[in-house]
Structures are given as structure tokens and as C-alpha cells.
Design a protein around this nucleic acid. Sequence first.
DNA 1: GCGACAG
DNA 2: ATCTTGTCGC
Length: 220
Amino acid sequence: MLDILDPNQTDLDELSKIQKKIAKKVIKKDEIETPKSVAGCDISFSEENQAYAACVSFTYPDLEKIKEKSIEVEVDFPYIPTFLAFRELQPMLKVVKKIDTDVYMIDSQGLAHPRRAGLASHLGVIIKKPTIGVAKNRLCGEGYKPSPEKGAYTYLKDNEEVIGAIVRTRTDVKPVYVSIGHKISLEKAIKITLNTAPKYKIPEPIRAAHKLATEKMKAT
DNA sequence: GCGACAG
DNA sequence: ATCTTGTCGC
């Protein structure tokens, strides 16, 4: 069972093994040249166990909203650094299957994870679709600070291995951490991230998903 | 042992 | 993630 959450599987060593198996299945090459659509996914929490997941799709590269969906679900797994997928994968899967798109942008790390299996990669491998990890903060690895201009980026490395990129989506604003989720190259992931962030630091699809999830959460 | 640590 | 006022800057 290299799948997802198992009630009796609270042993972190076991969960680490699951992540290592997921990591082996990650495809780091482009499945598509230019996506026609891209969706953003995010989750908001009211109480520690009440989750509101949202997914919003847009045309690419025009960024016109196509469709949006949200769901509410209870989660029983706590937030533990490097094990985020075991807390957010279920809600994400539930909302993602309501939105069909060429690429999914996830508010998390992909390969830029200690075991190369961040939430974005875990989700991509399970749904077998292209995913990109776009995180606001670093989980692991190191890299030089990119130049202050929008579009500048440096590579995030874990020793000699490139695991992602530190991308400046807005001039003079703290950069985001982009990494391969699944079925996409790092270069393409960076390109899509920059093309979907014409105005704000956070790519439009993720911003829209975050906004929708938060609204649903507050409405409860 | 100590510090770091996606959301 | 979420809790929160003011404030600097275009």
C-alpha cells in the first residue's frame, strides 16, 4: 500500500517509506508543451481538523477563469514538517477530481523535499497529472538569493542536486520556491509560474484558490 | 545535543 | 495554517 493515509499508519518511519516510493514514480519531463489550462489548489483550516479545499482553473496563458470548486472535509492528521501530504492530500484529491485541467499548481513543495516527495509530487503521482509546487517558504536545500527584478531566479540545491528554483515573481518582493511536482520539467514549471503571476507574488490560480477556500472557511 | 522545519 | 492595526509606497 504505497498509497495514502492508513489509520494505523502513524509511524513516521513507515510514512517516510511511502514517500520514497512516491519519489521514484515522479516524472521530471514535460508531458505537454504548452498547457491550455492551469488550475490552482489550496486549503484553509478553521479548527485544526476542519479543512476547506478549493481548486480554480484558468485558461493559459490568458488567465481567464474557467471553473471553481470547493469542498469541506475533516482531517485527522496533524501538521508535521515534511509530512504535509498526509494531512492535505485527502482534501486536495477530493476537490481536484472536480476540476479537469492540463496542469495543477499546488501551494507546497514538490521535489524540494527531504525525500523528494512533497505534497505537489505526491498528488501528481496519484492522479497521474502534471503538477507544480509553488511554496512561499523553503523546506530544505539552499540557494543564492536571486536578483531583485521580476523573472530572476536561482537554483535550490541539496548538495549538488538541483531540487527546485527560487523565483522572483515580483520585483523587490520575497521570492517563491518552485519545484517539479510531476510530469513537468523545472524550466517549464518556472515559466508557467512566472506567466501566471502578472501582478502579484503568488500565481493567480493559487491566489484564487486560496481566496475561495478562505471565503468558504469564514462562511462557517 | 542543537537548530531547522511546506501549510 | 490562523490570529490581527497600522503603515509605507505606488
